[in-house]
Computed example of a mutant assay.
Amino acid sequence: MFILLIPLTVLAAQSDKIDPALLGLIRENPSSEVRIIVELFERPTNEQIEVLKGDGMNVTHVYKIINAVAGTAPAGKIERIAGHPWVKKVWLDRTVRALEENEPTNETSENGTSREMVSEVPVFIPLLIVLLVAVAILKIFR
Rank of each mutant, 00 (worst) to 15 (best):
F2E: 12
L4I: 06
L4Y: 09
L4Q: 13
L5P: 02
P7D: 12
L8Y: 13
T9S: 06
V10M: 12
L11V: 06
A13Q: 11
A13W: 12
Q14S: 04
S15N: 14
K17S: 03
P20N: 09
A21E: 15
L22E: 02
G24L: 04
G24Y: 03
G24H: 02
I26P: 01
R27V: 15
R27S: 15
N29Y: 01
P30L: 05
V38W: 00
V38A: 11
E39T: 00
E39H: 01
E39D: 08
E39Y: 00
L40E: 02
F41E: 13
E42P: 03
R43P: 07
R43E: 15
P44K: 05
P44A: 10
T45C: 08
N46E: 09
N46P: 08
E47D: 13
Q48M: 14
I49E: 12
I49K: 07
I49N: 09
V51T: 14
V51P: 01
L52R: 01
G54C: 01
D55M: 11
M57K: 04
T60A: 03
H61K: 08
N67R: 14
V69P: 03
V69E: 02
A70F: 04
A70D: 06
A70P: 10
T72F: 10
T72I: 08
A73N: 03
P74I: 11
G76V: 06
G76E: 01
I78V: 13
I78M: 03
E79H: 05
R80H: 07
G83Y: 09
H84V: 04
W86T: 11
W86F: 15
K88C: 05
K89H: 15
K89N: 12
V90A: 01
W91N: 09
W91G: 10
D93C: 02
R94V: 08
T95H: 11
V96H: 14
V96N: 08
R97A: 12
L99P: 07
L99V: 12
L99I: 11
L99K: 07
L99N: 07
L99T: 07
E100D: 10
N102W: 08
N102H: 06
E103Q: 14
E103C: 09
P104Y: 03
T108P: 03
S109W: 02
S109M: 12
S109H: 07
G112W: 08
S114L: 05
S114R: 03
S114Q: 03
S114W: 01
R115H: 00
R115C: 00
R115A: 00
V118L: 08
S119Y: 13
E120Q: 09
E120N: 07
V121G: 05
P122L: 01
P126N: 06
V130P: 00
L132K: 10
V135K: 12
V135W: 07
A136D: 11
A136G: 13
R142V: 00
